[in-house]
Write a protein that binds this DNA or RNA. Structure first.
Lengths: 336, 336
DNA sequence: CTGTTAGCGCTTTCAC
DNA sequence: GTGAAAGCGCTAACAG
């Protein structure tokens, strides 16, 4: 009395026997090839399949074919709404092509990340999409196991030879946001709440912001990419004596924390401080006030990542522009 | 020049050859059994493995063993923060036991849900955890394919013979929340923003609320389980002439939408309306004002679900209590 | 302690 | 149009 098979599982041989054909023929009808089958024979086979409730064993198929129809996704934090949305779009894109998605969280832990890559590679996945915690984990470099699975790096602004790299134009986004604050709302100084990480390059968001603020001095606070991080950064930034009148958060999550800090301190947004954020998840739309942000084209990224694996395309490097979406947290009053 | 294998992939036979042993011995050292191996032989084998960069083919292993070490999770909407958190906890629990997690979204579509169950079952997963869109999709019933994979139903308040069913005590949660509004804050009437779905039973949240409000009349509005749904429900509920002074939302997402509606209408929370919600995701904690809610024990649920599969335990039915977490949206002023 | 080997369920070449 | 059979990489009897 449990959920496991009562009668033993039916195999292709059972179907063949019942239909009075060879196992090869069953294969031909299941896969629609590679050899033709007389239609009445095919019907007998289909009847047998239905009758027995036969389902092909994809493991065996994968062993034979050397391809599993499964993609792996490794992200630093699957509960982060940005990665949740990304994961969902990837799953959608994969599913549309008949491939399944296996997910794993590295918890921003480099060692775990390496271990996951090794583990997943052993599962003969058709490809691995990874958003590395400290840049692209290249096989054979720095403790990352040598694996031969095709990989695509989801957050690498720099190309990696032999691999596909996809990223959003973070610098453009930060510049767009900062310029909006400066030119539309006349802010002279724009503070930055920046995430902490250990990327081997200058974060595009920071760069974009820096380019926009030029050499005007402006406060920067560095906190984790979490709501709590943003909250603490916000407390720090907003409770000082000369508090900024505008701030750019490097992620939605941080902006949400920032907003909470402002509210608790009785600081009005956008009247007292304008806040804008990079990412553009749905959560930002429903924050109060709704956040003006630079939105990543998540669906396009997902689509491109899945496609390069499924179509076995040549590796490429692609950076997607982001879209400025104006809401109220910057001081604008969009209609609707 | 691409990410795929340049030198062909190394198999157990290569290792055996290099180490000068049989393939069986390689198996013994890789798996630590079932037969003992002389330590110097084992070392030779390990050296060969390292040298060649050998990784066991888990597909072949799965075919032989009849077990893949992969769990499947199907949820209605993977980008819903509740399911995102649940997925993450399930992945954590699974990962701790060396099993991987495959995810799929049914988009609340019954037909797709059935298809996914069939597809995933064909992949020989060790188990399937499903949060059904319209109750537990029992194999062989109502278009759900007959599969023999063990399943656990993640949102079934009713037991299903032969399967494990796990759920949160939604009724208790709703009652707790409603009583809090009534007894602590003295609200005579508590409105309900209820999600729309097609469960074959009375939703526990609605039931718990109903029990608590007794036969006092109170407005109910039914909208989708989304931020937008909550927003629209909120507009409807709060812009009328005699607007409720207290409302219970059946999910965090809806409460967040509700909050936005209140803010837009210039209605103060909790001064003008108290709002409480069922779910307890992190997003609720960072809403403004922070939402008082009934929190599901997501980690316990995840742990239990994974364990019953991995340990091949007998099916059971288990309902987890929820925890009342008091924040400010109800009118309380918790310290800290 | 180590080696030989059958076979997991499937695909596909090759023969008929 | 159909069937026989090899073999994907691995495990675990069983034999030495």
């Amino acid at each position: 009395m449990n959920g496991r098979p009562s009668r033993k599982v039916v195999t292709r041989a059972d179907v063949a026997r019942l239909a009075g054909v060879s196992t090869a023929v069953v294969s031909y009808v299941v896969n629609g090839g590679p050899r033709p089958v007389a239609s009445h024979t095919a019907n007998r086979v289909r009847d047998a399949i239905d009758l027995l409730g036969y389902r092909p064993n994809l493991t065996a198929r994968a062993l034979k074919l050397g391809t599993t129809g499964v993609l792996g996704l490794v992200v630093p934090d699957a509960s982060n709404p940005f990665y949740a949305e990304l994961g969902m779009e990837i799953e959608r894109a994969a599913s549309a092509r008949g491939v399944a998605l296996l997910v794993a969280s590295s918890n921003s832990d480099l060692e775990l990340e390496s271990r996951l890559i090794g583990d997943l590679a052993g599962r003969q996945l058709d490809g691995l999409l990874v958003s590395g915690t400290a840049g692209p984990p290249v096989p054979g470099v720095g403790g990352v196991p040598r694996v031969s699975t095709p990989m695509v790096y989801l957050d690498s602004p720099v190309p990696v030879p032999g691999y596909t790299t996809i990223t959003s134009n973070a610098q453009q986004g930060a510049t767009l946001l900062t310029h909006h604050l400066q030119r539309v709302h006349g802010h002279r100084s724009v503070a930055l709440v920046m995430g902490t990480h250990s990327l081997p390059w200058r974060d595009g968001r920071e760069l974009g912001w820096q380019l926009a603020v030029r050499n005007r001095t402006a406060p920067v606070v560095r906190v984790p990419f979490t709501r709590q991080g943003g909250y603490e950064g916000g407390l720090q930034l907003l409770s000082g004596t000369n508090r900024p009148r505008a701030v750019l958060a490097s992620s939605d999550l941080q902006a949400v924390g920032l907003l909470r800090a402002a509210h608790e301190l009785g600081i009005r947004v956008p009247d007292d401080v304008a806040i804008v954020a990079y990412d553009g998840t749905e959560e930002a739309e429903y924050a109060w006030p709704p956040l003006t942000c630079a939105r990543q084209r998540i669906r396009d990224i997902a689509e491109a990542a899945v496609q390069v694996i499924v179509d076995r395309a040549e590796p490429f490097h692609r950076v997607f522009d982001v879209d400025l979406v104006i809401r109220r947290s910057c001081g604008c009053t969009p209609t609707g």
